[in-house]
Design a protein around this nucleic acid. Structure first.
Lengths: 194, 194
DNA sequence: TTGCTTATGCGACACATGTTGACTAATCGA
DNA sequence: TCGATTAGTCAACATGTGTCGCATAAGCAA
């Protein structure tokens, strides 16, 4: 990720072990308490080697969570905006199920002691995804006087805000309801404006 | 803040110097590069004394920005929801002016290398403010089937998302337009639901 | 003023961090 | 298969981190 050839199988093995280790540790303890030393021990990699791949814990966490970020962005991209109001579309429902199943990790990532980098990355991916979706002339009617990127950033922030709030509270249960509540708000901002 | 009497004038002086120092440093460099040592030097306070007031840089940053958080929450609380669509209410316009004037600091705080604690604190204050506003029977019509706290968390996240996106880009200019765009989206989610 | 309380300064400690240079060994190209 | 390349290990260093005990002096109550 920094000074090594990413194609080298040795580097790939090392990075896979580092990502697995950081996810293990993130499930066990607060992000801020995860040290590079502990990470190296857990991954059974020399401490100096870690710095060859990632400059800090935050970068490693964000890289390890890239799949999760992609899943969230995909859910926003696939959500059919013309679906009925009283039932959350499947991609959204599945997203909330996924977050529910990993509520501890998401609460840690998006909470006060979480990773600003992960949150920013998720907002960024969501904003890009929604901007692309709105750009191709498929803009919901009535919002032409709102810049596309602001509209996208608004919705991206809203989703991250709801996920953070919901994962922080007991949250774990009732993914269905949370998904439906978010869907009603999200849907209203993606259809004809008042 | 931890083990000292907050009323003691000596402690108040020390904390005031620490808050001033961290805001100075935050205007000069990235948050992640601000060390407790540099902070102590800049504030002309012994390094060990810093730990008597704040456990880490993040806590100090968040405390120093508490006024800003309160200002953002107040703007959301004072915003008249029945104002016309084509002009942002004064509290909102002033908020965006303020963020514009301090775009560098806000971009640092809410960006990838920013403070998760500050962002979480701002969302939390906004969510509480909006929940209180919606709770007293003053709920916008048509949203009764969306839990109040989810509705509040949605809007809080949306505002933080727009501020982060806007402060991150050139952002500095055009506070008026950004405020208006956000107002149109915000207003739609605070009035009669479709 | 006098005496008690306590915030701060100071030096020291063990530990984590980020970096460096030399050595080892895995990988790849010819 | 052999040689060149390079990821990884290891030891060491300067610096930052948190914490401690003790001394000093600022603040407060009498």
């Amino acid at each position: 990720m920094i000074g090594v050839n990413s194609d080298d199988p040795r580097a790939q093995r090392t990075r896979a072990r580092l990502k697995a280790a950081v996810l293990e540790l993130a499930a066990e303890q607060e992000l801020a308490t995860i040290t590079m030393s502990a990470l190296a021990r857990r991954a059974e990699v020399n401490r100096a080697t870690v710095y060859l791949h990632y400059p800090d814990v935050d970068s490693l966490v964000t890289d390890a969570m890239e799949d999760a970020v992609a899943a969230v962005a995909r859910a926003a991209a696939l959500c059919p905006l013309d679906a009925p109001r009283d039932r959350a579309p499947d991609p959204l429902a599945e997203l909330f199920e996924h977050v529910s199943a990993n509520a501890t990790v998401y609460a840690r990532m998006l909470g006060p002691h979480g990773s600003a980098r992960f949150a920013a990355r998720m907002r960024e991916r969501l904003t890009a995804e929604l901007t692309g979706r709105f750009a191709g002339g498929r803009r919901p009617p009535g919002w032409e006087d709102v810049p596309v990127d602001v509209h996208a950033a608004y919705l991206a922030g809203a989703l991250v805000g709801v996920l953070a709030h919901w994962a922080a509270g007991e949250g774990g249960d009732r993914a269905e309801e949370a998904a439906l509540a978010f869907w009603r708000l999200f849907r209203a901002a993606c259809r004809s404006a008042p």
